[in-house]
Amino acid sequence: MDIPYTIQERPDTGLYNAKVGIWLFLASEVMLFGALFSTYIVLRVGSFNWMPGRDFDLNIPIGTFNTAVLILSSMTMVMAWAALKIPNFTMFNLKIDHFDWFRIFLGLTILCGLIFLGVKSFEYYGKFHHHHFPETHTFYAIYFTLTGLHALHVFGGMVVNAYLFGRGACTALVTVALTILYMAIFGPMHDTATGGGAAFIAGAAWLGIFGLPLGIFFLAVLIWKNNNSAEMWKSNPERLTNRVEVSGLFWHFVDLVWIFLFPVLYLL
């Protein structure tokens, strides 16, 4: 079945359908995060002496670093789209095809997302290790809810981007991300039972037993027979470009949410 208006503009909206769709979705996302932000405001205003995030040992340099990483990823995401759009796109006078530039930029975007989630899980690990849970304090409740929901969005965006990169990359990414998640959440629980360091051993074991073979398998798939995006680039380049644009719009929105989350949770 052919999906209508994936490339050509729909006469009544003047846009291809996916673009209208993603903007409607982003509107609903504004309300979702808005509801949680308003919860934060009500809790904060109603509190006797609200302490800012830095008084809860939230690490400001780490948070700043993560913000910069996410902004950088937004920049590479829009460059990935521009690389697809401009036929003779190149940088630093390198003789690389513009589809390869797209993959370089998209790869950097995914990498930045991975760094962001890695750093975030490191922060979570520290909190859980010191027995700071959502139920410990009102601040932690809203901190974990907001950053957790945001991290889920980052993860979702990365999966879509990895899919656009290639099917194999997508699955390999999910494997690595689940390992990080495992280490962040279950690591500290192992810690309390067996002592320090056991978490990372458990995480590494999990990665070794399940992750690595899966990763190698999907890397093989990636090299061999992946490439729905490369196939689509040959058969229907405009459709792929539009998919990247839509994925980019979501990714920029996730960046935009973090731009508000960082000062609100870490600094104020």
């Binding site: 003047g14 846009l15 903007w23 509107a27 504004v30 309300m31 808005g34 308003s38 405001i41 205003v45």
Partner: peptide, 23 residues
Amino acid sequence: KMAVIFKVMIFTAIFFTGLMALT
């Protein structure tokens, strides 16, 4: 180009303002 998007955003802004007014 995006008259539709503009309408969606105005609509969202109204609801968002209402949400913040609740606080």
